[in-house]
């Protein structure tokens, strides 16, 4: 059903959202929740998934309604759509995931102000098909979730010596079995810096540095491959 051209477009879209234009590591959008809620992997994952839900739904809704939205009032309309969706998610979590809701607190309603949601509505969903916008929203959300989860896991392991602590808030009682104690629970291990806000900043900086390093390495290898096949002289010059 999909032509090769559109298949590669979907791939580009995913690659763009998950890596090249990752909201958390490259666009640096919506840092407030990223830094505030990434103190444990479960909190981070939950907020990431809630954001993904909102970006996907708002992307689809904006794309579906785009022909009725006059250009000069598009921003108020986008905000109405986003705020409505966030409030629905907020109420739903309050009703059916109450424990998690108490932990995430103000950061669920604050998804409304997460720039990534409005940015994708404005830059992508308002000029693409519903399917493309939904995929873009989903992938952008997942890109953010991935960063949140990594950062959350990093901070939780360093800060408390556990992983997936509080999983029961997300999964019910079965979640208790998921908690990994990397340091024996009795040892009272605590490394506060990682759990406090500075740990969020330092952790995010380390993740960004790691991504830049990986990109740089890939670029160097590509350049090396290209120069090896092109001219032997330039490869000699580049070894030093």
């Amino acid at each position: 059903m999909t032509t090769p051209a559109s298949a590669s477009r979907w791939r580009d879209l995913c690659h763009n959202a998950l890596w090249k234009q990752n909201p958390g590591l490259v666009q640096l959008l919506g840092l407030c929740p990223v830094l505030a809620i990434s103190n444990t992997a479960v909190n981070a994952l939950a907020l990431g998934l809630a954001t993904t839900l909102v970006t996907t739904l708002s992307g689809s809704a904006v794309a579906a309604a785009r022909q009725w939205i006059p250009n000069d009032i598009r921003n108020p309309v986008f905000i109405i759509i986003i705020a409505t969706l966030v409030t629905c998610v907020d109420l739903a979590m309050n009703a059916w995931l109450h424990g998690l809701y108490l932990v995430l607190g103000i950061f669920i309603p604050l998804i409304t102000t997460n720039c990534i949601v409005l940015a994708r509505a404005e830059a992508f969903a308002s000029r693409n098909s519903v399917r493309a916008a939904a995929l873009d929203g989903l992938m952008m959300g997942l890109g953010l979730t991935l960063v949140l989860l990594l950062l959350g896991a990093l901070r939780e392991i360093l800060g408390k010596g556990t992983l997936f602590d509080g999983a029961h808030l997300l999964l019910g009682d079965a979640g208790h079995a998921l908690v990994l104690h990397l340091v024996p629970a009795g040892a009272n291990y605590q490394f506060l810096l990682a759990m406090l806000p500075p740990g969020g900043f330092i952790g995010l900086a380390l993740l960004i540095a790691a991504k830049n390093w990986l990109d740089e390495r890939a670029r160097r290898r590509a350049a090396q491959r290209a120069s090896q096949s092109a001219s032997p002289i330039s490869s000699v010059a580049s070894t030093e």
Binding site: T84, T87, C88, L91, A92, N94, A95, W96, H98
Partner: peptide, 15 residues
């Protein structure tokens, strides 16, 4: 929003 509230408000209060 209204319908979501109607669907959730009892559960929220109970919670």
């Amino acid at each position: 929003l209204g319908s979501t509230w109607l669907a959730t408000h009892r559960t929220v209060a109970d919670n």
